[in-house]
Amino acid sequence: MRNRMQRICLVGFVFVCGGCAPTLYLIDRPTILEEQAAGDWHDLERETEPAVLKNKPEAFAPHLMGRGGERVLQTLPGEPPIKGSR
């Protein structure tokens, strides 16, 4: 049955009349299959949006920042001359 479902859903065309030329949508297989065979959860979609679409930095605690290799914390050996000055 699943193979049938897949084949049924392989490619879908929807013509939407809009004036003289129809709008042609080419929809991919996973989208159609998900629409047809998986549940619709519009409330959940709406509720996840603020977590996905943000307009501010994430308030990560310092330990989540994984710091350590910053340039500020780098040190260099001195410039060793050929002959010592001491």
Partner: peptide, 16 residues
């Protein structure tokens, strides 16, 4: 760059 606080929402928004 390495600022995860900004990278996180940027990746997420780009996904959206």
């Amino acid at each position: 760059r390495a600022n995860k606080r900004l990278l996180a929402p940027l990746y997420s928004n780009l996904g959206h």
